[in-house]
Design a binder for these strands. Structure first.
Lengths: 202, 202
DNA sequence: AGAAAGATAGTAATCGATTACTTACTTTAG
DNA sequence: CTAAAGTAAGTAATCGATTACTATCTTTCT
């Protein structure tokens, strides 16, 4: 839960707001999160939010900045610690999955933002985030092919799409089961199939 | 587009309503589709909708019934026409993808329904739809293992999850590109990787 | 056959509830 | 003391849903 302190400095209050939104997104449809619900979660009145953000979309934008930073930082760290492209892909996958388990609202917000018809700042931020993410995957996959670790006939574009879809499928299963932690058990099994589909076979 | 006729018989009007909702779901966030928007798309007043449906959720429920019937019917037909479990899986995949291209709003509505916090009738209908779908995949996969067509160490649960996730990944890519037809080119490439991941290798 | 009668379908106005956002006032911390 | 932070009570717009009423089609009776 979020700290119930009153009279926080502005910067801290904004951070707490982001946390509250991410929490709420794990419990309900992200596009139906109201400013009243956010304020209530923080133990604040609704109007107080607008002391720190000019609009609701600015709140969502701050959330997406937070997501982009945290997710990419963990993904990069996981990739750098690995010793080969394939093990890097696996490490990135598990890091991503672990992030999703900790913050189940995040993938739901990302997908929700992509669905919006309007071209908001938060939507554009999600687009660039996924674009950057896809480029990282691309690099790893192409390096893996060069190193004869991955199938030389592999389509990096398709492999990248499947990588992201794999996680999306796990999220969908967790929505069906109503249990996020199930992902942790299923993720290795699902990645094993993916790994088998991209690996080099002499 | 939907027929602009006035004074349709009740059953036809309900069918037209479902079509309108599916169309709208392809253009905007499904959870933000209003009854006014539906009526406007049909060339009708908003109140007229409630002559044919007791509530908005009843409309969504009708849409989900429509989706479940159409999708499962096409998937079943594709599977029965195939000559082996693996080719059936591929046929189901392509049939599903073709369905998504024709009605891009459908997968977005399914995912959106799953995200809802409330236990509505339409949400439960989506849950049973995906459950049925997963069982079909299960059957095909287990038969494929028996027939020595698929990897004997394959986890049918994980393979089923990955199958659905693969399509979900394609949908996400189409949202990013803003172009649905891209799916048709990418689908075979992505399925090729999936196929490589599950196939039997002596 | 044809007009009256009933049933069905659609309209326009409106309801209370909820939304994002604003304003005027009060409290708190440095 | 003062500026920042929070409260309380508003705003206009929009939501799903209901109302009273009109238009159109179908059935029935002579």
């Amino acid at each position: 839960m979020v700290t119930p302190n009153k009279h926080l400095p502005a910067e801290e209050r904004r951070a707490v707001t982001v946390e509250a939104v991410v929490e709420l997104a794990a419990e309900q449809n992200p596009s139906n999160i109201t400013t009243s619900a956010i304020a209530k979660r923080m133990g604040l009145t609704q109007g107080a939010l607008f002391r720190h953000f000019p609009s609701k979309d600015a709140i969502l934008q701050a959330v997406m900045e937070w997501v982009a930073e945290r997710l990419m930082s963990r993904v990069d760290k996981a990739a750098q610690a690995a010793t080969s492209p394939l093990s890097a892909l696996e490490a990135v996958f598990m890091a991503h999955v672990e992030f999703v388990i900790e913050r189940p609202g995040v993938p739901r917000m990302l997908f929700g933002e992509l669905q919006r018809a309007e071209e908001t700042a938060s939507k554009r931020m999600v687009q660039t985030l996924i674009h950057r993410y896809g480029e990282r995957l691309h690099q790893l996959i192409e390096q893996g092919i060069k190193d004869k670790e991955l199938d030389p006939q592999l389509d990096p574009e398709a492999a990248s799409t499947l990588f992201i879809g794999t996680i999306q499928g796990l999220v969908m299963q967790s929505l069906l089961a109503g249990d996020v932690c199930q992902i942790r058990q299923d993720a290795p099994k699902v990645f094993a199939i993916y790994r088998r589909g991209i690996i080099y076979r002499p």
